[in-house]
Amino acid sequence: MLNNIKLGQYLHGNSWYYRLDPRAKLIMSVLFIVTIFLATNWVTYLGATIFTLAIVLTSRVSLKFFFRSIKPIFFLMLLTFFMNLFFNKTGKSFSPIYIKINQIMAGTFAIILALLIILRLSKVIKKHISGKIFKFSTLLIIIMNLVLVYLFSFEQYTWSFKWIVYKNAVINGGFIVLRLVLIISFSSLLTFTTKPTDLTLAIEKVLGPLKLIKLPVSELALMISISLRFIPTLLEETQKILKAQTSRGADFTEGNLKDKVVQIISLLIPMFIISFRRAEDLANAMEARGYIPGKKRTSLKELKWQYRDSLYSFSFVVLTLFLIYYR
């Protein structure tokens, strides 16, 4: 069950984007999220899209990884787009669309749904089978409805809704979806091409000026590195606990809310106790080796700001100026 979880998204590779200073990558990725909101019309969005595409394509990271990170939010994007179509009522309107639903079809669908819920609750059929039946029957009913109403123009027993779509709604919805895709691909590119340890070092350096107002930046960075070190260990331990509890008769695959809560308790108690024990050991070890919070620490790896990092940052300034000029 834990095999499909990947935490470090780093992919091995070698290109100009990999060789950039992590500080430059981090700052520019955060800036990109801010600057993309400057884009308001199609010229600026085109510019931002071309900029992102150029970087993504030359970074030599396989495109399928980007698709993989965009796929989970596909439904979300669809939802945002349709919400926009419903609620944005400005600009020119397209000719109204009539949505017709046949009452017989709706009734059949309701019966199928009720049957599925009853069968599911009485545990006659398994979860994945009911899901498949639901998807298949929904698709079938929609197609039959479309064929019946629009192809044969069967007007009896039909509900009819008038739906007016406005031009601005389509454009704005498209822009929101595009912005999401651009932001996600840019931030994924950062995690694909930068090792977590480099990223932590970059966070420490970038937030460095905040030390002046007494914020514990290096402690925060140390905390993140300790955590990054222990995430795989804890995942492995979770797997062990899972197997141990399964061998004692716990069932982690199905169950209602009560079973689920019992499963989670039986996993979380060992997780917390193991973590607390480890924290004690680690705190003792750190103190024995002379770690003093707040003192200046040196790092094994020093980051070097190079010519190409300045060039990369400059390209961002150009993008921002472009967005401000043409907005």
């Binding site: 905390m223 300790i226 804890l234 924290a279």
Partner: peptide, 10 residues
């Protein structure tokens, strides 16, 4: 610090 790191991990 160490406890916070472990809470972050969890």
């Amino acid at each position: 610090l160490v406890y916070l790191a472990l809470f972050l991990t969890i």
